[in-house]
Amino acid sequence: MMDGSDIPLEELLGHLNGLANDALSLWDLPAGASARLINVSENATYLVEAPGGHRSVLRVHREGYHTRRAIECELAWIDALGAEGVVTTPGYFIGRDGSPIQEAKAPGLSVPRFMVLFQFVEGEAPDESGDIGDRFEQLGAIAARCHVHAMSWTKPEPFERLTWDVDAVFGANPTWGNWRDAPEVTPEVRAILEEVETTIRARLAAYGKAPDRYNLIHADMRLANLLVDETGTRLIDFDDCGHGWFMYDFAAAISFIEDDPRIPDFKSAWIRGYQSVRPLGDACLAEIDTFIMLRRMALLAWIGSHIEAPEPQALAAGFAATTARLGQEWMDRSP
């Protein structure tokens, strides 16, 4: 479940709604401000509105997903990317106590929750149903600029963020759970996916974690996290940023649509955009499809461990079988 508890989702969201609205007093907001739920995933996200036109976005963190220090490190990278002109990132509000990270507990919840109030970002996410090859080219260039920055940035110490490697997906304590526990993992599906996991492990062990391949990444750089208007493009939602392979950022960009027939075109566009900023070696290009399968397996696990939320429920039907089909096709064409 999204908070690691046994509270049914509807009841949990009732508690979180009360928490979100009561917590608004922790910031210096206009009178009459109120919070309305707009998204539930790892976190609960609220649109905050007040008379006079104020809008902001409140992120109420999932229980146990990040420590305070990890959130501090996320905000530090957001600040650095924006300050150094790498990409436009969302600002955030400082609480009345001088901290951007607030903590509060609601009746009915066992532990306090961390919260961050972000500035509202104008713009719309690109329409994914139309011709979006140019958007993937833009996404590739943004990813490359972030990667170049990550390699040169002096990270605050101690630096604490999630890790998106093989162990995080397939290890003894996987971040998003065990893919074998996901819906519709039949014996036939499992047999194929066991082989897929073994192949991914072998290929990425050979690929390695050199710092020009594996460093700080956004890890959720989908078109949905790009907001575009006449003033430019902004990159939002750094909640999953952490250490991982650079090529994983393309795999994350096509999350949940890995079987879309346009994927080869999207991949070519993303690589073209990326290489306009930073060259990619043959080894990196050869393993992009491996990262697509690593991400797809992680998403299968995510659906299983978040099945009470609406989005995983909507995605669950057929997801395991499609993952197995994609995995078999990938193994068949892999050298």
Rank of each mutant, 00 (worst) to 15 (best):
Met1Glu: 14
Ser5Leu: 11
Pro8Val: 09
Gly14His: 12
His15Lys: 08
Asn17Gly: 15
Asn17Arg: 12
Asn21Tyr: 02
Asp22Ala: 15
Ala31Pro: 06
Ala31Tyr: 04
Ser34Lys: 12
Val40Cys: 08
Val57Trp: 05
His66Phe: 04
Arg68Tyr: 12
Ile71His: 05
Cys73Ser: 14
Gly82Leu: 02
Ala83Gln: 14
Val87Arg: 05
Tyr92Phe: 10
Tyr92Ser: 00
Phe93Ala: 12
Ile101Pro: 10
Glu103Asn: 08
Lys105Ala: 13
Gly108Ala: 05
Ser110Arg: 14
Leu117Gln: 04
Pro126Ser: 05
Asp127His: 11
Leu139His: 01
Ala141Phe: 00
Thr154Glu: 15
Leu162Glu: 07
Val166Met: 07
Asp167Tyr: 02
Ala168Val: 08
Val169Glu: 04
Thr175Ala: 11
Trp176Pro: 09
Gly177Arg: 07
Ala182Arg: 06
Val185Arg: 02
Thr186Leu: 11
Thr186Gln: 12
Pro187Ile: 13
Arg190Leu: 14
Ile192Thr: 15
Glu197His: 06
Glu197Met: 07
Thr198Phe: 10
Thr198Lys: 15
Ile200Phe: 08
Ala202Arg: 13
Ala206Trp: 00
Ala210Lys: 13
Pro211Glu: 05
Tyr214Cys: 09
Tyr214Ala: 02
Leu216Lys: 02
Asp220Pro: 05
Asp220Lys: 06
Gly232Tyr: 03
Ile236Cys: 06
Ile236Val: 15
Gly242Leu: 00
His243Ala: 13
Phe246Thr: 05
Ala251Trp: 10
Ser255Val: 13
Asp259Arg: 12
Asp260His: 04
Pro261Gly: 04
Pro264Lys: 07
Asp265Asn: 06
Lys267Thr: 12
Gly273Met: 01
Ser276Cys: 00
Leu280Asp: 07
Gly281His: 11
Ile288Ser: 02
Ile288Phe: 10
Ile292Phe: 05
Arg295Phe: 08
Pro312Met: 06
Leu315Thr: 09
Leu315Asn: 13
Ala324Gly: 09
Gly327Val: 05
Gln328Asn: 10
Met331Leu: 11
